[in-house]
Amino acid sequence: MTVFLGGSVSRVAVLVLAALGSACAGSTEPRRVVTLVTHSSPGGGSDVFLREMIPHLTRVMGGTFIVQNIQGGSGAKAMAAVAGARPDGTLVYATTPTFIYTSLLSDPAARYTDLEPLVNLFFDPEVLYTAADSTFATLGDVLDRARTGRGRWGAANPASLERQVMERLKQRAGVAPAITTFEGGGDMLINVLNHTLDMGVGELQEIRAQLDAGRLRLLAIVGDERLPQFPDVATLEEQGIALAVRKFRGLAGPKGLPADVIAAWEAAIPKLLDDPTYRQLYTDNSLQPGFMPHAEYAAFMRAFGAETEAFLKQSGVIQ
């Protein structure tokens, strides 16, 4: 923006930045209240997820939980707020791959490495799908088309886990389809339904309505195992392509979380996931339980970050 403007204005911009940098977002919540921070807006994916979880979490863990939406900068502001908070367990952040992508794609004040992964709760199963009235019955048909003609595949967002899936699938299957990205899953879904795309990749939850109405056909699960709701749909590995991703949903906190806080969450989450009413809810929402204790989650996050960074560098998105 400073492109368009003269010196006096870029000085304004500097002032603004200075003011911004010095603004410290301190939480003044009273104790025994745990704030669950999300970068999604009210009504967005993580927000709905947290709000639905709270009543069940309260039953299992006790205490009061509130959701705080810290939007902006694709998660950068939420990360900064959490990284700067007191590590006493009163502020935790709902993690999704977004916070890793934002850390790698831009230069935020706090990165994913400045946060302490706490525990993982779920995985969002990623699936490959096509329109039910398309000519493709199996993934093989789609790959054949990409081999012989012009394959057209879609992923929801330009630099995202879904894009990574499609690029890797292209490499491993040895085909050269056109891969397009959209502004979100709904936008892409329309292009699968109207046959602009042969195949799309996305979270099961996003396409659930169309799937139930019989307008979409699942081609493969991009994960380690089949889904209980769709036992007939094989994973990519089973179809001979070594590719699986795990789109995680977990919690993280500021660095230096005390051991008792970590232990409390490690004890509570398995109980939460076993809770029959909550199980019903998350199964309906197509979430796969994927509890990981603190140590395992931290290692997982490091590996996920490294793999994503490698992909982004390899494809030239970042230097």
Binding site: V3, F4, R163, E167, I179, Q314, S315, G316, V317, Q319
Partner: peptide
């Protein structure tokens, strides 16, 4: 002048294998 400055910034956008 704006066009020139913007052109210069645009020309330095890195290439990407996904382009």
């Amino acid at each position: 002048v704006i066009a020139g400055g913007y052109y210069w910034l645009a020309a330095t956008i890195p290439d990407s294998a996904l382009a």
